[in-house]
């Protein structure tokens, strides 16, 4: 039987491996992207998904929050950087930072809150984007959907592992972020290419420890 990793697409083919997939320990992780065994889907099992329900659009969707505006302006800062307009990059960054501050309200936040957002994104948000982007044949939106869906699954997977293993999970491990797609990778070194967006390893950044 064959099993595919939901995150990076790695194929585990029982006929080519010494240990059948079912007999691998639960602690086994994908050799390419480090996702848990639970992120693998049996290939034959993948049946036709039922058609997505029509998505209704709320007027609120066009209002942007402070947090969104912060990301919008940091993105435009990146655009200015790529075009070598440093003066504009600087001003966009001022706006982005102002909105980031405005977004912080010190309201309590928990790992459980994050888990809920993640499951909502995976079970609803990305499915909605997929059906609308497909209907409107917007390949850019389909691309952001595929990358985002995979990265979000990885985030959810990492959170689950942190919840079950606690601090031990990351005790002797570095945490790397792909600066192109946001993929997070636990390991001593970053992967040679990003399992999600295929960018090279130098685009990964290590998450530093808190400064004393």
């Amino acid at each position: 039987m064959k099993y595919r990793c939901n995150i990076c697409g790695y194929l585990y083919d029982d006929s080519r491996q010494e240990v059948p997939f079912n007999e691998l320990p639960d602690s086994w992780t994908c050799p390419l992207c480090m996702a848990s065994k639970s992120q693998f889907t049996l290939l034959e099992e993948k049946k036709e998904e039922k058609p997505a329900e029509p998505v209704s659009i709320d007027e609120d969707a066009f209002e942007l929050s402070a947090g969104q505006l912060s990301a919008l302006f940091s993105n435009l800062a990146r655009g200015a950087e790529k075009q070598y307009i440093p003066a504009a990059q600087k001003e966009f960054t001022v706006l982005s930072e102002w909105f980031l501050k405005a977004a912080q309200d010190n309201s309590p936040a928990s790992i459980e809150d994050l888990a809920e957002y993640l499951s909502n994104d995976i079970n609803k948000g990305y499915k909605d984007i997929d059906s609308i982007a497909t209907a409107d044949s917007d390949r850019g939106a389909l691309r952001v959907n595929v990358w985002g869906d995979k990265v979000t699954r990885m985030l959810s997977n990492l959170l689950e592992r942190y919840q079950s293993e606690g601090e031990d999970f990351l005790l002797n491990t570095e945490v790397w972020v792909c600066t192109a797609c946001g993929f997070i990778y636990p390991g001593d070194e970053p992967p040679q290419i990003c399992p999600v967006c295929k960018v090279q390893d130098w685009k990964f950044e290590k998450q530093e420890r808190r400064k004393a």
Binding site: Q68, L114, V151, L170, I184
Partner: peptide, 24 residues
Amino acid sequence: DGLYRLMMAFARSNRIMAEDLLRE
């Protein structure tokens, strides 16, 4: 330390995804 790094990486990752979404 582990939770700190994981959450800072989460913040970064979400920022990168939000930027990409707003671009599209």
